[in-house]
Design a binder for these strands. Structure first.
Lengths: 111, 111
DNA sequence: TAGTATTACCTAGACACTCTAGGTAAGGAC
DNA sequence: GTCCTTACCTAGAGTGTCTAGGTAATACTA
C-alpha cells in the first residue's frame, strides 16, 4: 500500500510536469530535480512514474522531445510544451481549482 | 477514457465519505445524495466507486456498518465513523492541505 | 586505477482506485 | 401493470503510480 506523501501526487504529476516546462525545455531528470527542489523536498518524483508520464503526454501531443546534451554534457531527452500542452495545462489548473474549491468547501464545514 | 469532472475525485472519495459521516450515520445511497447536493451537483458519486470504497474503509476499520431502515422505510446499510476513522479523516485533511499548498505554490508561480 | 556515486534513461509487474455497465429487490406513482 | 426511485452489489476494463529492477556514461575518491 502506497504511503503519504508518496502517493499524494494522485493525478497531479501531469500538471506539475507541464508547468515545469513553461520555464523552457527540460529533460526528464531535470524536471524531477526541479520539482523536488522547488517543493522543498515535499514532492518525490519517482522515475517509474515520471518517464511513463512523459511518454504518455508526448503521445497525446502535449509535449515533444528532442535529444540533446545536458549541462554536464550528457545525452538527455529535452521535452518542450506544445500549444496543445499549454491549453491542457490551463484546463487542468482550472479544473483543479474547481475541485479544490468544492472539496475544500465540504471539508472545511464544521463537523 | 474517464472525462472531467468525473475523474476529478482522484483519491478524494474516501475523505469526502468520512467527512459526510461526521454529521452522523448514513447509508451509502444517502452519502452519495448528500455529497452531490452539497457540492451543487459538481460532484458525481458513482455507485461503482462508492460501494467498493465503503467496503474498503470498513475492512480498514475506519467505518462500521449496521442494517437498518431508511427514511422511506427501506432496508439500508448505515455506516458510522469509528475513532480510527476520525483519526484517518484528520490525517487525510492535513495531508491534503499540505499537497494543495505545495502544488498550488508551484502552479501559481508566474510562468 | 579500481570502486563508488551521480547523471540520465527505460521497463515490467504489482497494486490501487475509479468507471462502465451490468444486476437484484422492493416500494410508490400512474 | 409498468415504470421510476430507492438501495445495494459486482465484474471487468482502464488508468496511473510505485517498486524494483536494468543500462550506460561521466565524475569523484581512495
Amino acid at each position: 500500500m502506497p504511503q503519504p506523501p508518496a502517493d499524494l501526487l494522485q493525478g497531479t504529476l501531469d500538471v506539475l510536469v507541464l508547468k515545469t516546462l513553461t520555464w523552457g525545455p527540460r529533460h526528464g531528470y531535470a524536471i524531477a530535480r526541479w520539482l523536488e527542489d522547488t517543493s522543498g523536498e515535499a514532492l518525490r518524483i519517482e522515475e517509474g512514474s515520471l518517464y511513463p508520464a512523459l511518454y504518455r503526454m508526448e503521445r497525446k501531443g502535449w509535449i515533444t522531445a528532442d535529444w540533446g546534451l545536458s549541462d554536464l554534457g550528457r545525452k538527455a531527452k529535452f521535452y518542450r510544451l506544445t500549444s496543445a500542452g499549454r491549453t491542457r495545462l490551463r484546463q487542468e489548473i482550472a479544473a483543479g481549482r474547481r475541485l479544490v474549491g468544492v472539496v475544500g468547501h465540504i471539508l472545511e464545514a464544521a463537523g
